[in-house]
Every structure is written in structure tokens, then in C-alpha cells.
């Protein structure tokens, strides 16, 4: 290698690499990164995809999901620390039955520890938990959903009951959208199903009358 090349390489290394030294990778964009580039990442303005609001929850004018109360155990390294009768031999379903009844569990047979990791199961907001929202997308979702972003990770795997009244405050968009659709569908059925039966009967009568008239 020539001297000129060496100088250029050194200069390049100094110029390119210097910001990395002594600087922690902890900007929101760094934490949100998935670790590889996709086609749309190279478009102008693509940084928007990685922007997160403070708290990591983009609620979109308050209609998205919120966590009104988070249990203390969700911040613990061992979420079951204070559960008196906890044993590693007890199946998760014994206490967390509703959480097994969603698309991931029912249709894909995904087991709890595939996302919540093995014992001790840490609380999802524990700083080092793989399910902590700052890294959930990369450490958990991306295992199956290649390229998952923080926005993607805001999908509610354990979704609430959309028609329950609590959901109106915890996830308004979900509650109102599902109720709107149910009223629309229900309205169509409530009118058309009985009306079609009556229409059928009326047609039968009309047919009899017409054939009687011809006879």
C-alpha cells in the first residue's frame, strides 16, 4: 500500500469513525433501529418511521392504546417475585388464561416463553427485559416479523375485548371502530333477514293469487 493511500485511509477513519468513540448509542433513533436497512429507509424523510413520542407510545390524538395502570411487578427482574404460590412447575395458563387466547397463541401455537423468555420471567417494563418497549421490536417481534419497528411493536398481542366498556378509555379507536362495524352489520341483518322472510311469504301469496286468477 502506498503512503498516499495510508494517509487517506487514516484520514477517512478519523473523519468517519470519530463520533463513535466515547458516545453511547442511546438516541431514540439508535434505540429504535432494527439493525438493517430496508428499501424505504433510504427515502428522504424516512427518519419519521423511527420517531417515537416520549414514553414510546404513539397514541395518535389519544385514540390508541394506553396503559392506565402498570403493575409494580412489570418493572421487576423477576415478575413473579412477590407471587406467594409461584412455582416454575406451574403452567402459565393457570393464572394467565386470557393471555393465551389471542391470535399468536390460538392460531400459531406460540408459547408464552417464546416472547416472555425463560425463567425468571422479567416484567415487560424492567430495564433489561427483552419486552421493554425500547427494544421489544428488535428482540421479540423481529424473531418472526423481519424488520419489525417500534411502531409495529405497538400492535397489541394481548388485545382487549373490543366491545367491553373499559376499552372505550384504554383503546378508543378499537372500541369505536368495532362498535361502528357491529352496528352497521347488525343494522343490515336486523332489517334484511326478517324482511326477506316476509318478502318470500308475500311472493308466495302473490303467486297463488296469480295462478288462481288464470284458472
Amino acid at each position: 500500500m502506498s503512503v498516499g493511500h495510508t494517509i487517506i485511509s487514516l484520514l477517512g477513519a478519523l473523519l468517519m469513525a470519530s463520533p463513535v468513540f466515547g458516545q453511547a448509542m442511546n438516541t431514540p433513533e439508535d434505540l429504535a433501529a432494527t439493525g438493517f436497512f430496508r428499501d424505504q429507509d433510504t427515502l428522504p424523510g424516512s427518519f419519521r418511521f423511527y420517531q417515537q413520542l416520549p414514553g414510546g407510545e404513539e397514541r395518535l390524538w389519544g385514540i390508541g392504546p394506553s396503559h392506565p395502570k402498570i403493575r409494580r411487578s412489570s418493572f421487576k427482574l423477576d415478575a413473579h417475585e412477590d407471587v406467594a404460590d409461584f412455582s416454575q412447575q406451574v403452567r402459565c395458563q393457570k393464572c394467565h388464561e386470557p393471555q393465551t387466547k389471542d391470535l399468536h397463541g390460538l392460531r400459531m401455537d406460540i408459547s408464552c416463553v417464546q416472547c416472555h423468555r425463560n425463567q425468571p420471567v422479567s416484567g415487560v417494563f424492567q430495564y433489561y427485559s427483552p419486552l421493554n418497549p425500547i427494544r421489544r421490536h428488535a428482540y421479540v417481534c423481529a424473531k418472526c416479523h423481519e424488520g419489525a419497528s417500534p411502531s409495529f411493536a405497538s400492535y397489541m398481542v394481548h388485545e382487549p375485548n373490543p366491545i367491553a366498556s373499559e376499552t372505550r378509555s384504554t383503546f378508543p379507536a378499537f372500541y369505536y371502530a368495532v362498535w361502528f362495524m357491529l352496528i352497521l352489520a347488525g343494522g343490515v341483518f336486523v332489517f334484511f333477514l326478517p324482511y326477506t322472510v316476509l318478502w318470500w311469504l308475500r311472493d308466495l301469496i302473490a303467486k297463488f293469487k296469480r295462478s288462481a286468477g288464470h284458472a
Binding site: L60, Y155, F174, V178
Partner: peptide, 30 residues
């Protein structure tokens, strides 16, 4: 879903799936 969540919050997929499902049941039922 991964591409969609680049343009809107991922929780919109919770909403989308239910709306899709109810409209489909309405259409088939009708």
C-alpha cells in the same frame, strides 16, 4: 403488517383486523 406500521402506528392493525373481519362476515352473511 411490518410495512404498514411504518406509515401508521402498529396498533392500527388491531383495529384493521376486526373491521376486516366484521365487514367480511356482513358480506358473506348477506
Amino acid at each position: 403488517p411490518v410495512l404498514t406500521s411504518d406509515y401508521m402506528p402498529g396498533w392500527m392493525l388491531n383495529v384493521a383486523l376486526w373491521v376486516h373481519r366484521i365487514e367480511a362476515v356482513l358480506a358473506m352473511g348477506h
